[in-house]
Design a protein around this nucleic acid. Structure first.
Lengths: 209, 209
DNA sequence: GACTGTATCAAACGCTTGTTTGAAATTCAA
DNA sequence: TTGAATTTCAAACAAGCGTTTGATACAGTC
């Protein structure tokens, strides 16, 4: 092979390449359907590297699920604006994360984990879903006020998340059914705008009861 | 073995048991993750039966996806009532199909197919998604009127479907995050009612623009 | 009763899987 | 320069995979 990096850099490089490839392959095929050989093929490393660097396929899977925390996305909906404006910004940021090409393996991996849970479900709940739900519950509560029950607030939060994640989940089917429709930045913005307006109407109606 | 059925009944029995087991295993693990041996174990038949009755794993998968057509569910939203009432009945019926225990393998299989498409995506589009979209597009158009663009109508349809399918897709995560929440008939009805009201608010606002 | 056709079985095949192993290459420290 | 440590490699292992095969059991027909 060519001249190697310093050992720790070489090791980090191999680990990073494995993680990137692992996210792609696990996102596409799930834990069972993904193979160590396919991951290593994409990473351009030896199959033994998985056991050497990660102690096996399952540990690699858990490491691949280590996720960027939500602070950046949640930060987009903080600030002095009223709750409706902040909700709109949040939805736009969320849709960008779900639909942008560069985020595809991550968001696909999360959606798949929701549908086909692994032992990582607990940590995904703690690191992703509970903060997300808590944040959105706060926004919804700000908009609907105190007279709406917790159960109803929860349903509103689910309605918000359901609309956004639908686009991620049905991406291939939509490509088939609407071949001319491309989710570029413009279409993502229009979609986020729709989800915001559609949802605010329902939230305001709930507030007015 | 014990006394056998007449040949055609024996054959139908084996095929049916394989199909039921196949739906469960494919729904849980996907095409790649599912194994012929696991399917046959659950069906209580010999592994050779898959090739004998279905000509292989892939043909079994396609047969497992053969789906009950939507006429019954679509029929629930036909009749003399106005579109809002019919939309509500449709959503309730849809939620029952998504969340009822007896429909779990079927609806889980469809959700998984959307997220992780197989070569069956085309036929699922033709038999399930296109009729569903067309039907909902008709209902939405009746409610919002003629001044709303086709693109906006499509987004409303996606919002409706997204809210409903979210419960199916996040079932395990919700069980973890809200352990006291059981989607019995009463909770399903309350959820359908929420989705209907939440959505009608958005649809009426779109109509009023 | 003999023969044919169908359905099921246990076993085996060739291939792929995740993991392990000993060797080789390279980096690092003394 | 030497020895230790780390990383990477090709090859092999045992297990499991989807599929095939020949045998067996039974139903149906004449």
């Amino acid at each position: 092979m060519s001249a190697r990096l310093p050992e720790t850099e070489s090791s980090e490089c191999t680990r990073d390449r494995l993680l990137v490839a692992a996210r792609e392959v696990f996102a596409e095929s799930g834990f069972k359907g993904a193979t160590v050989r396919e991951i290593c093929r994409r990473a351009g490393v030896n199959v033994a590297a998985v056991n050497y660097h990660f102690n096996g396929k399952e540990a690699l899977f858990m490491a691949a699920l280590e996720l960027e925390p939500l602070e950046n996305m949640i930060a987009s909906s903080c600030g002095p604006d009223n709750a409706e404006v902040r909700l709109g910004r949040f939805i736009h940021e969320f849709m960008l994360r779900l639909m942008n090409g560069c985020c595809t393996p991550h968001s696909q991996l999360i959606m798949r984990e929701l549908l086909e849970p692994s032992p990582a479900l607990d940590s995904i709940a703690k690191e992703i879903m509970i903060p997300l739900h808590r944040h959105l519950t706060g926004l919804v509560r700000e908009i609907v006020g105190d007279r709406v029950s917790d159960a109803e607030v929860r349903r509103h939060v689910f309605s918000l998340l359901g609309q956004c994640s639908y686009y991620r989940n049905t991406r291939e089917m939509n490509r088939l059914m609407y071949p001319e429709l491309a989710y570029d930045a413009q279409e993502i913005e229009a979609t986020a705008k729709h989800i915001t307006e559609f949802s605010l109407a329902g939230l305001k109606q709930a507030a007015g009861k």
